[in-house]
């Protein structure tokens, strides 16, 4: 494991901690897309089905369990917590799941390396993760007064993706048998989706103004 990969994972973990702090600390999920959170839960479930059959390291197994646990908790809080669910912007969070899930499923079926249930679902999770942030970005555009925690959550998530690209570049040059075109392509697409957000995030940071995304 290289430093970019570790830093990327830590950013990912930190993004989830920030989100959980916001949700449980101030008892509000305002500005957070439940659709994106449910898509991430689906991504983790379909990707980590091999959790008990394909042991890589204790680190990997623990992280997988943490991601599954925390994303389940976030979805639970947003859907069922008596107080928190009242702060969910349901009317604004209108992105259609099918628009992201259906193409990911078709692409997974068309391009899977091997046709086993685990492999097709793993491929599906790669495609779906690339686009799962879109409902969140659309919701951010519609949210007036984006709070710091929400802005930082999306920023940390985008940083995680950027660091994974550095990790792949590093691995490409240091490991002979590391060639994952599908993962790389999806990863780059996913990172490009964040570009617009990053631009406005840095602009607000530089000008010391509140983050706002133009519609």
């Amino acid at each position: 494991m290289n430093v970019f990969r570790l830093a990327g994972d830590m950013m990912h973990l930190l993004s989830i901690v920030v989100l959980l702090l916001k949700i449980t600390g101030i008892k509000s999920c305002r500005g957070i897309s439940l659709k994106t959170q449910e898509l991430y839960l689906l991504v983790f479930i379909t990707r980590y089905l091999d959790i008990f059959t394909n042991f890589v390291s204790l680190y990997n197994t623990v992280m997988k369990l943490v991601f599954l646990g925390t994303s389940s908790a976030i979805v639970y809080y947003m859907r069922y917590d008596r107080i928190i669910k009242l702060t969910y912007d349901k009317e604004q969070d209108t992105f259609k799941y099918l628009l992201l899930v259906a193409p990911s499923a078709v692409l997974a079926l068309a391009t899977s390396h091997v046709y086993t249930v685990l492999e097709v679902l793993w491929t599906f999770s790669i495609y779906l993760e690339a686009v799962a942030i879109m409902p969140q970005l659309v919701l951010l555009q519609r949210t007036q007064n984006i709070d710091n925690l929400t802005g930082n959550y999306v920023f940390l998530l985008g940083s995680y993706r950027g660091l994974y690209i550095l990790n792949w570049i590093y691995r490409f040059f240091t490991e002979k048998h590391y060639r994952q075109w599908l993962v790389w392509t999806c990863g780059v697409v996913q990172t490009i989706i964040y570009c617009d957000f990053f631009y406005y995030y840095f602009l607000s940071w530089q000008n010391n103004e509140k983050l706002a995304l133009p519609a």
Partner: peptide
């Protein structure tokens, strides 16, 4: 088999 050892990322 080529793919097996490559699924070491999260």
């Amino acid at each position: 088999a080529e793919d097996e050892d490559e699924k070491d990322e999260l």
